[in-house]
Nucleic acid binder design. Sequence first.
DNA 1: TGGAAAGTTAACAGATCGGTACACCTAAGC
DNA 2: GCTTAGGTGTACCGATCTGTTAACTTTCCA
Lengths: 193, 193
Amino acid sequence: MRPNKRDELVRKALTVFYRNGFHATGMDMLVAETGVSKTSMYKHFRTKEELILAVLRLRDENFRHWLYRRIEELSDTPEGQLLAMFDALSEWFEKPEFRGCMFIKASAEFQEVNHPIHAQSAAHKQILQDHFASIAKAAGAAEPVKLARQLLLLKEGAIVSAVMARGGGLAGDPAADAKEAARGLLTLHLPQG
Amino acid sequence: MRPNKRDELVRKALTVFYRNGFHATGMDMLVAETGVSKTSMYKHFRTKEELILAVLRLRDENFRHWLYRRIEELSDTPEGQLLAMFDALSEWFEKPEFRGCMFIKASAEFQEVNHPIHAQSAAHKQILQDHFASIAKAAGAAEPVKLARQLLLLKEGAIVSAVMARGGGLAGDPAADAKEAARGLLTLHLPQG
DNA sequence: TGGAAAGTTAACAGATCGGTACACCTAAGC
DNA sequence: GCTTAGGTGTACCGATCTGTTAACTTTCCA
């Protein structure tokens, strides 16, 4: 039961769950895709739920670190970084494997408020919101937390709209629209206008 | 096979799917909740997918007509109606049975772009966007379609955030935050400032 | 070299999945 | 009154669901 074996299982399970959904993905499919035996799988994870929670923890790390790094690469001012988030999102939306936000989907499939999967999804959003708030504060926003919440609304809306627009079912460029809206909000929130 | 019997089945199935999710709800559960026999259920709907599509059609009608009526009740100016949308959303979020947007959840559970359920969910959003655009045009917006898309982003973001915030997992009042952001966007888009 | 730890295959459990076969019942038309 | 068509309940289909049991092989380290 090497720990890196477990990590590898989590990594592969992530791609299958992301592509296929949680309820629609059976343990048999995961076993087939990872090449591991069913018994070994259940040695590493006592239940499917435990596996999903491990997948979400990994996704939280991966996604946040990718986003944080990317917006720092794209701009070195706090204000610019808040806008660069939408450029990073745009890059994500254009990847062929893009299938929306894993946490939105997880909270949609596990709706009970007290369910660990639902709670963990909400925690991810809260961490992002806090991060945006700290950047907004550095940018000199009068109400950094409020600005962060509004930017998070635009981000979530852009992700959902990008999913709908993926096959041409919804018109518009969600990332670009969100960025323009964010620019408007920034001019209203930042002292230098 | 009376037609109103079918409507009643769709109505009841809607509440069960909305509360429980699509994959997680089996036909056996629907049969038990509606009181009808399984054979009758399959006389009315050839497959589960056909039932889900009928449910989404009903949801589209119900939701859009509720939202359109409510924002007209709350304001009689186009600009006021665009803002009133977020008051209507706030009322929705506070209902105990609120479980997020059925179309976001449907598109999350049926991700293939060409899947009828996914396509129908995207179509719902497109219809809403067109409606907002016509109101934005009546309000005198310079770019009504762009404003409509941005307001839709805020609406979708608010819904997703409201789901996450339901159990206290995410701080903030998504409807109020979205309304304030929308007010900001309106001042930037409308000629009278 | 011995032995525990970890991994393997394979079969299986009990429940539930979407969907169907078939006998039964009831109500309308002759 | 009899037939017939349509709705109904029951019981079932094969497949799949999450999870387990038991016996066997590999690996690694003392």
